[in-house]
Design a protein around this nucleic acid. Structure first.
Length: 425
RNA sequence: GGAGAGAUGGCCGAGUAGGUCGAAGGCGCUCGCCUGCUAAGCGAGUAUACUGGGAAACCGGUAUCGAGGGUUCGAAUCCCUCUCUCUCCGCCA
C-alpha cells in the first residue's frame, strides 16, 4: 500500500509515476474519499470529546437527579456519534479497498517502458555449451531417461502436474538441499519451513489479494489459500511486529512448493516442466533498513546468481521496465537461464524490492533506536532458485548426444556421487 | 469431535457490585546521579495509530486491555458472536 500522507501531499507526482506502469494504474477518486474521511472523522471526534467531558462531569455528581438534563443530552450526542461512525466506517472501508488495489510506484531507477519488450538486459554470464548435435527439449530427455512422467502426473491430478521418478526425484531434492545449504552457510540466510497454506490477511499483506484471487488455489471449508510462493508466508513471519534496528537486515531462506492456478495462460508452455500448477522453489527474503535497500537488492540478486554460477549454467540478468514489474514491486531483476532445447533464455528467478509497500500492508516496522518512532522496513525477495526450472536447465544444458545427462560437479555430492544420469536398458 | 480454562502495555502480572484506568506493581530498557571495577542503590522517563494546529520543537483531540457487535450519559469491567491459546478425553502422523 502506498503512503496516504505522501499521496495527499504529492498527488500529481504519484499519479505520474504510477502511470508509467500502464493505463490501469490510477489514483483518481483518492482525493474525494480522503477528504470525506477526514471531515467525518473530525465531526465525530469533536462529539466524542464532548461526551467524554460531560460523562466525566456526570461521574463526579453524587445525586444523578441533578444531571438528568446532561444525560439526556448525551444520549442524543451518542446517537449522532453512532450515525457518524457508521458513515466513517463505510468511507474508510471504501478508501482501504481502493488503496489495496493501487500498485506500488516504480522506483526512479526502474526503466520506463510499456511491456516486456522494453526490459533492459543487464549482463550475460556463463558459457553457452557448444553442442555437436541438435539439442532436445527437457521433456524428451526426461521421458527418455524415465525420470519425468507427464502422463501419470496428469492421470493422478491433471494437466500441469508431473511425476518425478528415480534420479529425477533425487535431482529435485538434491537441488533443494544444495540451494538451502548455499544460502544458509555462505550467504547467511536463516532457514525457515513455513506453512504452505496461509490465511487471507497474509495474502493481502504481500499483495496477492485482493486483486489476484484468480491466480490462487483457495481451499474449500476454510478461508485458506495454497501459497503461490514462499514470499507470502515468509514475509508474513514479521507481520504486525516492530523489529530492532540492530536485527536488520533479517535474511530468511525457505524451501516450499508453490501452487498457481495459471489462469489465462492456457496455450502457453503446455509441454514440460516450465509452467506447472505445483512447483518447488527456494526463496530468499530480506527485511532491510530503508536506506540501503537497493544495495540489498543487488546482493540478493548476486546470491541467486551464485546458484547458477556454481551449477555452471549460462544465464543473463534482465531489469524489468515499469510496465512489466509486479504489482507490489518497485524494482525487479529477472535471471533468465539459457535453454538450448528451446534456444532461448527463460526466467528462473525474479528478484524484487518492494520498498515499504508490503511492509505498510503487513505492518512491519523497525525502530532506529530506543527513542525514535517506528518506521517501515523495506522488504525484498527473490527466487534462489525455481527448482523445477533448474532441473530443466540442467537437463537441457548438460545433455549428451547419447541422451544421458551429466550432473554438474557441485551437485554430485547431493546425488550420492552420481556423475551422470543414463537410461536404464 | 466432546468437556473445561484463558486472552491486559517489550515481558510478568493487578484490576469483574461499570466512572477518578492508557491502565497498579514488578522486571526489562533509556537518560542522569552515585560508584576503584562489577553488582547494588537513588531520581526521571519508557505503547501505537489516526487526526487538528505549528516551519519545527511541541501542544491538543480521538481510538486501542484478542476481534467484531450490543447495553449505558459512561465499559478492561455487563451481554452476544467470532478467533486464537492451554488442559483433559477421543482420534491421528
Amino acid at each position: 500500500m502506498l503512503d496516504i500522507r505522501f499521496i495527499r501531499e504529492n498527488l500529481e507526482e504519484a499519479e505520474t509515476r504510477l502511470k508509467t506502469r500502464g493505463a490501469g494504474a490510477s489514483l483518481s477518486g483518492f482525493r474525494e474519499l480522503d477528504e470525506r474521511r477526514r471531515t467525518l472523522l473530525q465531526e465525530t471526534e469533536t462529539l466524542k470529546a464532548l461526551r467524554n467531558r460531560v460523562s466525566d462531569e456526570i461521574s463526579r455528581v453524587k445525586d444523578k437527579s441533578e444531571v438528568q438534563g446532561q444525560i439526556a443530552e448525551m444520549r442524543e450526542v451518542s446517537q449522532r456519534i453512532k450515525v457518524l461512525d457508521d458513515g466513517l466506517r463505510s468511507v474508510e472501508e471504501e478508501l482501504e479497498a481502493f488503496m489495496l488495489t493501487v500498485p506500488n510506484i516504480p522506483s526512479p531507477e526502474t526503466p520506463v517502458g510499456s511491456s516486456e519488450a522494453d526490459n533492459r538486459e543487464v549482463r550475460r554470464c556463463g558459457i553457452i555449451p557448444e553442442l555437436t548435435f541438435s539439442p532436445k527439449p527437457h521433456w524428451e530427455i526426461g521421458e527418455a531417461l524415465d525420470i519425468l512422467d507427464f502422463e501419470r502426473g496428469a492421470k493422478i491430478t491433471g494437466a500441469r502436474f508431473t511425476l518425478y521418478k528415480d534420479s529425477g526425484a533425487r535431482l529435485e531434492r538434491a537441488l533443494i538441499n544444495f540451494m538451502l545449504d548455499l544460502h544458509t552457510s555462505r550467504h547467511n540466510y536463516i532457514e525457515m519451513l513455513p506453512p504452505f497454506m496461509v490465511n487471507r490477511e497474509s495474502m493481502t499483506a504481500t499483495g496477492q489479494l485482493p486483486k489476484f484471487a484468480d491466480d490462487l488455489f483457495h481451499l474449500e471449508g476454510v478461508d485458506y489459500f495454497l501459497i503461490p510462493t514462499a514470499e507470502v508466508p515468509v514475509t508474513n513471519i514479521h507481520r504486525g511486529e516492530i523489529l530492532k534496528s540492530s536485527q536488520l537486515p533479517v535474511l530468511y531462506t525457505a524451501y516450499t512448493p508453490c501452487f498457481r492456478r495459471e489462469a489465462g495462460s492456457y496455450g502457453k508452455d503446455t509441454r514440460g516442466l516450465i509452467r506447472q500448477h505445483q512447483f518447488n522453489k527456494v526463496e530468499l527474503v530480506k527485511f532491510v533498513h530503508p536506506s540501503d535497500s537497493m544495495k540489498d537488492l543487488k546482493q540478493l540478486l548476486d546470491n541467486a546468481e551464485e546458484v547458477l554460477r556454481l551449477l555452471e549454467l549460462p544465464y543473463r540478468v534482465v531489469e524489468l521496465c515499469s510496465g512489466d514489474i509486479g504489482f507490489s514491486a518497485c524494482r525487479t531483476f529477472d535471471i533468465e537461464v539459457w535453454l538450448p532445447g528451446q534456444n532461448t533464455y527463460r526466467e528462473i528467478s525474479s528478484c524484487s524490492s518492494f520498498g515499504d509497500f508490503q511492509a505498510r500492508r503487513a505492518g512491519i516496522k523497525f525502530r532506529e533506536d530506543e527513542k525514535s518512532k517506528p518506521e517501515f522496513v523495506h522488504t525484498l525477495n527473490g527466487s534462489g532458485l525455481a527448482v523445477g526450472r533448474t532441473v530443466v536447465a540442467i537437463l537441457e544444458n548438460c545433455q549428451q548426444e547419447d541422451g544421458s545427462v551429466i550432473i554438474p560437479q557441485a551437485l554430485r555430492h547431493y546425488m550420492g556421487g552420481l556423475e551422470k544420469i543414463t537410461a536404464k536398458s
